[in-house]
């Protein structure tokens, strides 16, 4: 036996796959080779350690639902429902028939836009969309309305123009009066100013005369004394 051959047998040895003779041969060979013994012991120890690892179990049990069973159960449910609702008496059957007809009529009506109306003593039944109702005025009515509106507009415009003219005249007269008043006030003010100026001039002239007389008097007196 060689070392390589011994290593090939390690797995079978560890998992009990060797016959007794081969097992004994391997054990004897390994005892003679410490490196092989160390390797084999290490692998066995590794196996022991791997067994220490815990594992978690599934938390719930899977169940595969049968699709055919689901279809069957749905059909059976429908049959049970129908048998429960199915009328047994003649009156019940008549009621179901009437209800079915009304239901069918409503469904058909909703799908075809059924319109039931009564107008001018006539009953009308229409399918599909209803024609649009006449809304608005005739041409003559429109013309009459336009004429009325035009007349009202003309009257309103005349009143407006007249009022505007009256207002303008009043404003013009007021402006003229104001202007005249302003001119009168201005004239009065000017006259007062002229009068005041003349008075000042008169007073000034008088004062000059007085001063001139005084100066002349002093001159005459001086000349007289010098003589």
């Amino acid at each position: 036996m060689t070392k390589d051959k011994a290593r090939e047998l390690f797995i079978d040895y560890m998992y009990g796959g060797l016959d007794i003779d081969t097992q004994n041969q391997l054990e004897a060979f390994v005892q003679q080779h410490p490196d092989l013994k160390e390797e084999l012991d290490g692998m066995m120890e590794t196996r022991q350690m791997l067994q220490q690892m815990p594992v978690e179990s599934p938390t719930e049990q899977f169940v595969m639902m049968d699709p055919a069973a689901n279809k069957r159960s749905f059909r059976i449910s429908l049959e049970n429902l129908w048998s429960a609702l199915k009328p047994t008496s003649g009156f019940g059957r008549f009621g179901v028939a009437v209800a079915s007809f009304v239901f069918l009529f409503i469904i058909t009506g909703s799908l075809t836009n059924l319109n039931f109306s009564m107008q001018d003593g006539e009953i009308s039944l229409r399918f599909g969309e209803q024609p649009p109702a006449q809304i608005g005025y005739t041409a003559a009515q429109v013309e009459l309305l336009i004429n009325q509106v035009q007349a009202e507009n003309a009257e309103l415009m005349a009143d407006f123009v007249q009022a505007a003219q009256e207002q303008q005249e009043a404003q013009f007269q007021q402006t003229l009066a104001s202007f005249a008043s302003y001119l009168e006030e201005q004239r009065t003010s000017d006259l007062e100013l002229i009068d005041f100026s003349l008075a000042n001039l008169q007073e000034t002239t008088y004062n000059r005369f007085v001063q001139t007389d005084q100066v002349l008097g002093e001159i005459i007196e001086t000349v007289s004394l010098n003589r």
Partner: peptide, 26 residues
């Protein structure tokens, strides 16, 4: 299969040794 198991166990042993894990821990 046996060859892979052999090399797998050897590799695990080396890893355990490098991480200082041995059976005494357990």
């Amino acid at each position: 299969v046996k060859s892979r198991l052999y090399y797998g166990l050897r590799s695990l042993k080396k890893t355990f040794d490098s991480w200082n894990i041995n059976k005494e821990v357990f």
